[in-house]
């Protein structure tokens, strides 16, 4: 954010009121940094990569499944052995490891995706806002460029409940 404000709040309710007031004034592209998943974090309306999470986990799960099938079928065919009257490639018996590795693949991918997408997306929020977060502090970044003086004054009034409003670097 090249020009704007970072409003720091000590109460998620007041922060949410301010965000809603700013939205009513037509301010867009606001971002929130918060110590907990308060409802306000869902109100900025920022699109993001998180919609892909389920698909990424599914992809990871399918990779795990493929690994399990390759491992079980491949090694069984490499050294064919009949055990307990079962066929060499025993799909029912192989099902357990297929399930386990599918779940493992999905879980690992989900975790990695969360870490990587989180790292990529957090850069779009001003550092000052990110650094302001404490267990009793949350911050809203407000873009101030391109607004008339009257609008800016109204926006300032909307942020009256803030503990502090700093200029964003």
């Amino acid at each position: 954010m090249r020009e704007g404000w970072i409003a720091v709040f000590d109460d998620p309710g007041r922060a949410r009121d301010a965000l809603r007031a700013l939205k009513a004034l037509g301010v867009k592209d606001m971002r929130v940094a918060s110590p907990a998943a308060y409802p306000i974090v869902h109100e900025t309306g920022q699109p993001g990569p998180w919609r892909a999470m389920g698909w990424l986990a599914l992809g990871g799960g399918l990779c795990g499944l493929t690994l399990a099938i390759s491992l079980e079928v491949g090694t069984s065919l490499l050294h064919p052995m009949h055990v307990g009257g079962q066929p060499v490639v025993a799909w029912v018996q192989f099902g357990v490891i297929m399930f386990e590795l599918t779940m493992l693949g999905a879980g690992l991918t989900n975790f990695l995706a969360m870490v990587l997408l989180g790292a990529l997306s957090r850069r779009r929020v001003a550092r000052g806002a990110r650094d302001a977060v404490l267990s009793d502090r949350l911050a809203i970044t407000v873009p101030a460029a391109g607004h008339s003086p009257e609008q800016l004054a109204a926006m300032r009034r909307a942020l009256a409940g803030a503990l502090a409003v700093n200029e964003a670097p």
Binding site: A36, S121, V125
Partner: peptide
């Protein structure tokens, strides 16, 4: 590097139920 930004929380809240579901 978790910083509690809105997008991080949204990602977190999407990933966590998947994890719990697994």
């Amino acid at each position: 590097g978790f910083a509690g930004t809105d997008s991080e929380w949204n990602i977190f809240e999407k990933a966590y139920p998947i994890f719990a579901g697994i």
